[in-house]
């Protein structure tokens, strides 16, 4: 099967999935973290491996043994619940943040209602009264499926483009 005939994704599906990802970004940017959790399947794999600088041509530079995130739904829920306490100082006072999601590409997945989705992210945030804007960029490899009529993220691998992180901490979800 050639790659052209393998994946003919209906435009409606593409629009629905893009809309889903924009809605997700909206929830994160507006600190609606509990609502965000509802978009994740119960068995979600949420990983952010490290990027490394490797010499050579065509070599893999995504680390397989080290990460910034390696979370289950339970672990993400713990992180989210913390942001609803009064003393998670990293987000109190709150960060002002934007997830710019672009370059969305949808391919069929292993099931009838399952899709492999790649998207780019540009994350920016402003904190306190500091003039500097912090940022992070990279791409996300998702498995998104429809469960009982609702779209859910079943898996997300976040690939950062930075080897040295320049946000002073990582309190954000990507």
């Amino acid at each position: 099967m050639s790659s052209e005939t393998k994946t003919r994704i209906l435009p409606e599906i593409q629009i629905e999935i893009a809309d889903f990802l924009y809605r997700e970004a909206y929830l994160l940017d507006h600190r609606m973290y509990k609502e965000w959790l509802d978009l994740l399947s119960e068995d979600i794999v949420y990983r952010m491996p490290m990027r490394e600088t490797v010499e050579g041509v065509g070599v893999d530079n995504v680390a397989s043994d080290s990460a910034f995130f390696d979370e289950s739904k339970a672990a993400l829920t713990t992180r989210v619940n913390r942001y609803y306490t009064k003393s998670a100082w990293v987000e109190n006072p709150a960060t002002r943040q934007r997830h710019f999601i672009s370059n969305i590409r949808v391919e069929s997945g292993s099931g009838p209602d399952e899709y492999k989705v790649v998207s780019y992210f540009l994350y920016k945030r402003s904190r306190g009264s500091h003039p500097e804007i912090e940022e992070m960029l990279g791409e996300r490899h998702d498995t998104i499926k429809r469960v009982n009529g609702d779209w859910k993220i079943a898996s997300r691998i976040i690939i950062p483009d930075q080897t040295v992180i320049t946000t002073m901490n990582m309190s954000m979800f990507l």
């Binding site: 910034f68 995130f69 992180r79 100082w89 901490n169």
Partner: peptide, 24 residues
Amino acid sequence: AYKGYLGSFGVSGTLEQDDTETWA
């Protein structure tokens, strides 16, 4: 234990996140 580490210390760790605020 590695997952426990990511959840507590390092740049994404929940404890270290709040430490970075004090340093700043």
